[in-house]
Design a protein around this nucleic acid. Structure first.
Length: 820
DNA sequence: TTAGGGTTAG
């Protein structure tokens, strides 16, 4: 029995019986083998069971002693024994010793040559394998046999070059052998030449199970899963039973086709034929159920496994991680370690994602440390990308960037992860910068994920022209009808003020899920077209698309920006009663904003008092913002007190509060808030505005004096101010938070970043052409008023996007009707 | 005594 155990179908025995493996090695292999081998000299004349020794050599050290013993015994000269040594070294991974032994064999036969070729293939030396076969065919007199070509063809599949060998196969008539033909099928599948593979497969006079499996896996590996499933149907019709290999190939195909019924039928087949004892089959079942989100089923398969390998553990960990159950995933990692299974890179990839989901900063450092100690970031790009993604998702973007820089050979996913990481953390300019660097790498081709990562950054910055360039490339790659890419384009055009273009794109992409609807509803909302948002929402319901919680955030804020109080209340009702969605803090925040902006301050306050969730800073912030607009200092004070109880770190709220005091000239209040903020070590976020000119993004900071065109810009602003004054402009000093002289206040207002950007736009573009700018904070009331005048004087359309919404100025009027 | 076809990924 022991003689059969060490290798079973060419696999190393401990993998199948992990607990027995060490035991067997210790007692059977090392002890006996070492004893016999170390006494080699004395035992050379005794009758030694060499067969047993061959089976017992589990490392190169023992193999070399056996080899020495064979030489001493004079047995090494025989072709048979010599070739066995070649094979022994190959199985132990020492291909150099295999070759040395091979070279020492004087008279070689086909068995010897075949073994050497296989030795190379087994150890992934594919070029050497092909060269060795070539040597056999051309230089030696030996005729190849049925064992010669299959391993050689496997090597060809890896080096993507098989023409010569295929010619030899034909010349010698081996194409009729079922093993050789199946190997040809497999090789052509690896080349991606499915028609050739399928032709060879169809022409085979007899197809064994292995050939069917080769064809099915060929289709799967080329992403043609539908074809794979239909070949498996044909296989059944021809009366050929499936085995473990067939099933473990076909199960992932069911997952990809989203065909749970078929997947479960295969599972039934597995149970009926007792195939679940194969580790590959059970692993494939776990993975399939995980993709269907059926964690219970996956868990049951895992529980019933007799032998679990690393892939089994990785699969169950990934199953929980991918279905939003990071803590269970982490728990399984612990169990895996206590079972003595060493994690690999894929384990760590799932782990990184788990800790990011559970927002466990401490565990994140441990995961990173674990990877660092093993230098896996150097070894495998996937694990580096996973760490970058982990830190980005946790908002520790500096660490993410540091790890990104350490990845030695970045692939497209590395770049995409870094771009979307910056984007998701609100750092759009950094995302654009990384994309620019990526474009400088010749070996990196952007893909669908790249577009989905970079387009939101462009929308955020209002960089329409740069975004349109990407649109062109997307059209070329024929990706514009992809739901996610299409939705990003809708968002881009919508956020850059091109609502018509956004709408026509929206009608082109599939509208079966809520993603694209949410985008188009939100775009209309931030432009103050609340009514259109409502109409779109009704259309969405009519088309039978289920709204989600994001839909209602977009919708409620659309109503809020347009003053549609009744519609907003109706939406809030529909969300709960008809769609069964529990409102989150975001939704409550929108409602407070809705009432507050419209001037129903008391209603907003009592709404807060009655809400079932504990109000957070965003809720009190919304109330404070409304109090600022409507000048209700008392309620504003109350809101800010509550606000600072829950969040004393957000500088934006201090600005809002001091703004409110400044508005009514209460300079003491302003100073109090200032010193409060200073005591807490907070600094105001510097205001900046950007404008896109000649495919570059120019950024202006408030009070900027260092821009190369600074002088021209201020001169332009002075001319404009003079003209505005003649048309009745009176500066509103309440937006100046400093208690200084009026002249100084006017100068401060003039240096607001949005004004600098508009003036620079006027200087740099053709008369009467439209101007679009972006501001990182909210536009101040005086700048809003000024922009109306400028649009009239210069006869330009001016679009200003701030952190809150769009302002579309034309002929001295703003689309928001001064309601924002 | 040498041979083909299989599961997990950011």
């Amino acid at each position: 029995m022991f003689r059969l155990l060490p290798t079973w179908k060419g696999r190393h025995f401990p993998q199948y019986f992990p607990s027995l493996g060490t035991h067997y090695q210790l007692y059977s292999t090392s002890a006996n083998c070492a004893r016999i081998l170390s006494n080699g000299a004395e035992e050379k004349n005794k009758e030694i069971d060499f067969e047993f020794l061959f089976q017992s050599c589990t490392n190169t050290h023992l193999a070399k002693r056996l080899h020495a013993l064979l030489i001493v015994s004079g047995k090494a000269q025989s072709i048979f024994i010599g070739t066995r040594v070649v094979n022994l070294y190959a199985h132990l991974g020492d291909v150099t010793s295999s070759r040395r032994t091979f070279d020492q064999i004087q008279k070689k036969d086909a068995y010897t040559w075949n073994s050497m070729v296989s030795a190379y293939v087994r150890n992934s030396h594919f070029h050497e394998a092909v060269n060795c076969l070539h040597e056999m065919l051309v230089k030696s007199e030996i005729r190849p046999d049925f064992y010669t070509f299959p391993p050689a063809l496997k090597a060809c599949g890896h080096i993507l070059d098989g023409k010569k060998i295929h010619c030899w196969v034909f010349k010698l008539g081996f194409q009729w052998d079922v093993f050789v033909a199946a190997s040809l099928v497999h090789m052509y599948c690896r080349f991606g030449s499915l028609p050739i593979a399928h032709k060879i497969f169809s022409d085979m006079p007899f197809r064994d199970r292995g050939s069917w499996n080769a064809m099915i896996s060929g289709f799967c590996q080329n992403g043609n899963v539908a074809e794979a499933l239909s070949v498996s149907d044909e296989m059944r019709l021809e009366g050929m039973d499936m085995d473990c290999v067939t099933v473990s190939t076909i199960l992932p195909a069911c997952a990809q086709m989203d065909d749970i019924l078929r997947g479960m039928l295969f599972h039934l087949y597995v149970i009926k034929h007792g195939l679940e004892f194969d580790v590959f089959v059970s692993n494939a079942l776990i993975n399939m159920y995980a993709k269907f989100g059926k964690l219970g089923h996956a868990q049951r398969v895992f529980d019933q496994m007799v032998v679990r390998d690393l892939v089994s553990w990785n699969s169950i960990i990934a199953a929980y991680e991918q279905n939003g159950n990071p803590d269970t995933a982490l728990g399984f990692f612990g169990k895996m370690q206590s079972n003595g299974i060493q994690p690999d890179v894929l384990t760590l990839v799932s782990l990184a994602s788990s800790v990011a989901q559970s927002r466990d900063f401490h565990a994140a450092r441990s995961v990173h440390g674990f990877i660092l100690r093993r230098c896996w970031i150097m070894k495998d790009v996937v694990v580096g990308n996973a760490v970058v993604d982990m830190y980005a998702k946790l908002g520790i973007i500096d660490y993410a960037h540091r790890v990104f820089e350490e990845i030695p050979s970045k692939d497209v996913v590395s770049w995409n992860t870094m771009i979307s990481g910056y984007g998701q953390n609100g750092l759009a300019s950094e995302a654009v910068e990384v994309f620019r660097m990526m474009e400088g790498c010749e070996d990196i081709t952007p893909n669908q994920t790249t577009w989905v990562s970079i387009l939101p950054a462009y929308s955020h910055l209002g960089a329409l022209k740069l975004g349109m360039r990407i649109h062109g490339r997307i059209l070329k790659a024929n990706l514009h009808l992809d739901v996610y890419v299409g939705t990003c384009l809708v968002d881009l055009y919508g956020k850059c003020g091109r609502l018509d273009d956004a709408l026509s794109l929206f009608y082109e992409v599939p509208r079966t899920n809520s993603v694209s609807w949410n985008a188009i509803i939100s775009c209309h909302g931030i432009h103050g077209h609340g009514q259109t948002s409502m109409q779109l929402f009704r259309a969405m319901m009519d088309e039978g698309v289920k709204p989600d919680h994001v839909t209602f955030v977009s919708l409620l804020s659309a109503c809020s920006h347009s003053g549609l109080v009744d519609h907003g209340q109706w939406c809030f009702h529909v969300m709960q009663e008809e769609c069964g969605i529990e409102p989150s803090l975001m939704h409550y925040g929108c409602m407070v904003d809705l009432f507050g902006r419209a001037g129903y301050l008391e209603k907003a306050y009592s709404f807060i008092k009655n809400m079932p969730l504990r109000p957070d800073a965003s809720i009190w912030g919304a109330l404070l913002g409304a109090c600022r607009i409507h000048g209700n200092v008392d309620l504003g004070k109350l809101a800010s007190d509550r606000l600072f109880e829950v969040d004393s770190e957000n500088t934006g709220y201090y600005v809002l509060l001091s703004n409110m005091y400044a508005n009514i000239g209460q300079w003491e209040g302003v100073n109090d808030v200032r010193s409060l903020a200073r005591d807490r070590g907070l600094r105001k976020t510097p205001g900046w505005s950007s404008i896109e000119l000649n495919n570059r993004i120019e950024v202006f900071y408030t009070g900027n004096q260092s821009h190369p065109h600074c002088e021209e810009i201020y001169k332009e602003l002075e001319t404009l101010t003079a003209k505005m004054k003649s048309l009745g402009y009176v500066p509103d000093y309440s937006f100046v938070l400093q208690d200084v002289e009026e002249d100084e206040k006017e100068r401060i207002l003039m240096s607001h970043s949005e004004r600098l950007a508009i003036a620079y736009g006027i200087i740099c573009t053709a008369p009467k052409s439209p101007i679009q700018i972006f501001k990182n904070l909210r536009v101040c009331g005086d700048c809003h008023n000024v922009t109306k005048f400028i649009s009239k004087i210069t006869e330009r359309e001016i679009i200003v996007r701030d952190s809150n919404r769009f302002h579309h100025f034309k002929d001295g009027i703003c689309s928001c009707g001064d309601y924002w």
